[in-house]
Design a protein around this nucleic acid. Structure first.
Lengths: 201, 201
DNA sequence: CTCAATAATTAAACATTGTTCAATTATTAG
DNA sequence: CTAATAATTGAACAATGTTTAATTATTGAG
């Protein structure tokens, strides 16, 4: 029997999540099972249920970390100085997002390509909202009305995400290299921003 | 024992697929299991494996039908006469797509929100490609180069899909009514097309 | 018509899965 | 030291997709 004094509850949770992330990264989401994860940390499935309530609970925690990582990669691409090249920043963010999806393919798939029986907990929905904020921040100077900013930022980000998703899952009509998603995003963003300017002029 | 002479192989496949579709539509993808489907058509799981090879095989067949339906709803929205209002047609198509996703929610989720162990068969990949063709058709007059047409059409369609996907799965930052996805798509398309015109001028 | 060959269908079994829970073991408090 | 408490386990459940040998139905040849 694993001794409780080996780790505090927090340490044990961290150990479990770290190990779970490793399993997903190296062997894909399918291999993340209760018995496998429990075995890898030297405990039994019951302990995971004690800590996380369910396997979906584990997955939501991993996904929250992934959302955090994505945000961390994207947020710093916007230098706060005024008079910046906003389109350039947006292009950078989109490229970074697509790049993240490719370099952390399995984690990204766990985030967007799995279905859970449980409703997402409130703190998780919050995390999702936050992950969209960097783009909104960058685009802020382009809009007078808060409502239009929100609409524009979310539409654009969803669009970039859609391009990325269909490429990675192969559920869309693009079977070639990663060049395509980045290229498509670039094209979309350029046209979109052009159109925005024009509507304002 | 179900008697083979009750249906020809084709009839039996059709019966199975029709029943499977009904199960998904009314109770969601989770309830489409081998035993359930077999029971509903008066056979046993083994027969399904005889017909479709695997449960993924069944799902690919249903999804192919769904892709067909989507195409049928979208394709006729483009009247072939010249001097048409192309942007209007694109808006109609996007709205129809999002509407389909809502009115056939479960089938649409089966198509885009499930993960299969098997690689999609060639005929299925073909179906995916085809489903994108109507938009490409409409946008054709806007581009001289075939390559740019393909890039633009796929980027735009993926974008619309992304907006739709994040709304329906609630994996993006939109928790309100269906109005949002349609509204976002409208906004995106308008800006995108504006930007395209401008780049050409 | 008979009966062997063939094809479809079934029943039962397997290996996995997530999950629950009473029993067991370790830790803490008094 | 002992009683209360908390963590951990092991075993069990129900359900899943899938395989396969045995069974049943159909067909075709003599």
């Amino acid at each position: 029997m694993a001794r409780r004094s080996d780790h505090s509850r927090e340490e044990l949770e961290e150990l479990a999540l770290r190990t779970a992330r490793k399993i997903v990264e190296s062997e894909g989401a399918q291999t993340l099972t209760a018995r496998r994860l429990a075995g890898d940390i030297g405990y039994t499935p019951g302990t995971l249920y004690h800590l996380f309530g369910s396997m979906d609970g584990v997955i939501y925690r991993i996904n929250a970390e992934t959302l955090e990582k994505i945000k961390e990669e994207i947020a710093p691409l916007h230098k706060r100085k005024p008079a910046q090249d906003i389109p350039a920043d947006i292009h950078k963010m989109a490229a970074a997002y697509i790049n993240f999806a490719h370099t952390h393919r399995e984690l990204w798939l766990l985030l967007f390509n799995t279905q859970s029986a449980e409703q997402p907990p409130a703190w998780y929905v919050e995390k999702i909202e936050e992950s969209f904020s960097p783009l909104e921040e960058v685009m802020k100077p382009l809009y007078k009305k808060e409502s239009e900013l929100k609409l524009a930022a979310r539409a654009l980000w969803s669009a970039i995400h859609g391009i990325c998703y269909l490429e990675i899952t192969q559920k869309g009509p693009m079977r070639k290299s990663r060049q395509n998603a980045t290229e498509m995003a670039k094209y979309l963003i350029t046209s979109f921003l052009n159109g925005q300017d024009r509507a304002k002029a």
